[in-house]
Computed example of a mutant assay.
Amino acid sequence: MRINENTLLEGNKVALVPYNAEHVPRYHEWMKSPELQQLTASEPLTLDQEYSMQKSWRDDEDKCTFIILDKQQWAASGAEDEQCMVGDVNLFLTDPTDPTLAELEVMIAEPSYRGRGVGKEVTRMMMCYGVTKLGIKKFQAKIGLDNDVSISMFKKLHFQEASVCRVFREVTLELTVDGSVGSKLLDDMCYVKERDYRQTRSNRTELVSH
């Protein structure tokens, strides 16, 4: 999805940036992990396949993806995105008959960033983006039954259990964003800043070079 190809979202702990080709090598290294393959129900890909996947995720109209960066490291050091990558977050429009329904997926790939509130902030930032930019009114999260940490996080964000699939060993959690839920979400995340990604990168490069 190209709607976010020049979007930078800045929260307290993280910055969300569009998934570009320069992010692929680090992402590819992450996805060699059997743990992450299991948590994301993914198969290992070659580097060339990962580049093709990145391009398709950028172009497909039913996928919206951001790379998660450590905001403090990224902002303070002038480091390249790849050095600050923490994980990724995705919205999938899974029902062609209902464009207001989206599946939400968050991956905190770097173990040292887990349990620090990063996933919670990223999830709420992505939900705000989905509501305000994509018109999403209902979110789903499909999580492996063994992933207690993720299940607990989504339930703390008021997602409710909708179904359990014993065959695929996953639970589906849902949250409908009605008036009160939407208002509270937007109020709670009013500190998030949206910037021009290319311009911000250009400005950072100029500061570092001087």
Results as ranks from 00 to 15, higher is better:
Ala109Tyr: 03
Glu50Asp: 13
Phe159Ser: 00
Met31Lys: 03
Thr100Ser: 15
Ser209Gln: 13
Ser42Cys: 06
Lys155Arg: 14
Thr97Asn: 14
Val164Tyr: 06
Phe159Met: 01
Glu105Phe: 09
Glu174Met: 08
Val149Cys: 07
Lys137Val: 07
Met125Thr: 04
Gln83Ser: 15
Glu121Arg: 00
Gln37Tyr: 03
Val89Ser: 05
Thr65Trp: 08
Ser52Ile: 10
Asn20Val: 12
Ala162His: 11
Ser152His: 12
Ser77Tyr: 07
Ile108Arg: 01
Leu36Cys: 05
His158Arg: 13
Val24Arg: 07
Lys133Met: 13
Leu47Met: 04
Arg169Val: 10
Thr172Met: 09
Ser209Gly: 05
Ser209Met: 13
Val17His: 03
Leu175Glu: 02
Ser209Tyr: 07
Asn4Ala: 11
Arg2His: 10
Asp146Val: 09
Ser183Leu: 12
Gly135Ile: 02
Met153Gly: 00
Lys55Gly: 09
Arg201Tyr: 09
Phe159Cys: 03
Ala79Arg: 11
Ala75Lys: 14
Thr46Ala: 08
Met189Cys: 12
Gly119Arg: 01
Asp148Cys: 07
Arg198Lys: 15
Gly78Trp: 06
Ser150His: 01
Lys133Asp: 12
Cys64Gln: 11
Lys71Gly: 03
Asp188Trp: 08
Arg2Tyr: 09
Asp62Trp: 11
Gly115Tyr: 04
Trp30Gly: 04
Thr97Gln: 14
Leu186Arg: 07
Val14Trp: 01
Gly182Val: 01
Pro99Leu: 05
Lys193Ile: 12
Lys142Glu: 10
Glu103Thr: 06
Met31Phe: 13
Ser52Arg: 12
Arg114Trp: 03
Thr40Asp: 12
Pro99Thr: 06
Asn20His: 11
Val171Pro: 03
Arg201Pro: 00
Val171Cys: 10
Ser163Phe: 10
His158Lys: 14
Val118Trp: 00
Tyr129Pro: 01
Leu45Gly: 02
Ile3Gly: 05
Arg166Val: 13
Tyr19Trp: 13
Lys193Thr: 10
Gln83His: 13
Glu161Asp: 11
Arg116Cys: 14
Arg204Gly: 09
Val17Pro: 00
Val171Arg: 12
Pro111Phe: 02
Met189Gln: 14
Gly179Trp: 05
Ile108Lys: 02
Ser209Asp: 10
Leu69Ser: 05
Leu185Ser: 01
Glu80Trp: 08
Gly115Ala: 02
Glu10Phe: 10
Asp188Asn: 09
Cys84Arg: 00
Asp60Leu: 12
Glu61Gly: 15
Val86Glu: 01
Lys184Leu: 10
Asp146Glu: 11
Asn147Trp: 03
Met153Asn: 02
Leu145His: 03
His28Gln: 04
Arg114His: 02
Val17Cys: 04
Ala79Glu: 09
Gln160Pro: 05
Gln199Lys: 13
Ser150Trp: 01
Asp60Gly: 12
Val171Thr: 15
Ile68Asp: 00
Pro18Ser: 01
Glu110Ile: 08
Gln73Ala: 13
Gly144Pro: 05
Asp48His: 07
Tyr197Asn: 08
Asp196Ser: 04
Leu145Ile: 08
Pro44Glu: 08
Gly119Phe: 00
Glu10Pro: 04
Glu5His: 14
His210Phe: 14
Ser52Cys: 11
His210Trp: 10
Asp62Tyr: 11
Thr132Lys: 14
Leu69Cys: 03
Arg116His: 14
Gly87Ala: 04
Asp70His: 05
Ile3Val: 14
